[in-house]
Amino acid sequence: MNKMNKTKINFLSGLAMLELEAKAQEGIVKDLRGQLTKLDTAQDAINKLEDTVETHKQKQMIEAEVAELKAEITELDVTASDFVTRMMDIN
């Protein structure tokens, strides 16, 4: 083989290797982007879950307060002279 053919083969081999390397990098970048997207999606799901838990806790607190107020109202003596004042305080 003459020197020109060896140089050409080396050049083409180098290009082929570079192309494979570029394809590999593209694959890695695509995979990492997919993982980042999954991470963002997972973080969004966690945030929504935390918000839901907080909302549920607040709802339970409010329901407990309402139950307590209902119990206080039920225990009021409607014949007492301060009935209206105590009802206003509860409200």
Rank of each mutant, 00 (worst) to 15 (best):
Q60H: 04
K57F: 07
S13W: 00
E68F: 00
T55A: 11
L39N: 13
N47H: 02
M1P: 13
A16K: 08
G27H: 05
K8Q: 09
E50D: 11
K38H: 02
K59P: 01
N2E: 11
N10P: 00
M61F: 03
L36T: 04
E54W: 07
E54H: 07
F11L: 08
S13L: 00
Q35A: 07
K6S: 08
K70C: 08
K38W: 01
K6A: 07
R33F: 06
K6Y: 04
V29M: 07
E19V: 08
D44T: 14
L49P: 08
L18V: 02
L69R: 14
L18N: 02
L39W: 12
S13C: 00
R86C: 02
A22E: 00
A42E: 15
G14K: 04
T52N: 08
K30E: 09
L15W: 01
G27T: 06
T74Q: 14
L15E: 01
E68D: 10
M1G: 14
N47V: 09
T7H: 02
E21K: 14
V84I: 12
M61I: 08
L76A: 02
E21V: 13
Q58D: 13
I90N: 04
A67L: 05
A67S: 05
D44F: 12
A22M: 01
T55V: 11
I28K: 15
M88C: 01
V53N: 05
D89C: 04
V78H: 08
T85F: 10
D89Y: 05
T37H: 10
L18S: 06
T79Y: 05
I28Q: 15
L32G: 03
L32S: 04
K6C: 04
I62A: 13
L15S: 05
T74V: 15
T79G: 06
T55D: 13
T7E: 06
D77F: 08
A80M: 02
A45E: 15
G27E: 09
V78G: 10
L76H: 04
R86Q: 06
A16C: 03
K3H: 07
T41I: 03
K57H: 13
T41N: 09
K8H: 09
E21C: 11
K8E: 13
E63I: 03
V78A: 12
E68T: 05
K30V: 04
K8N: 09
E72I: 15
K23A: 13
L18F: 01
N47Q: 03
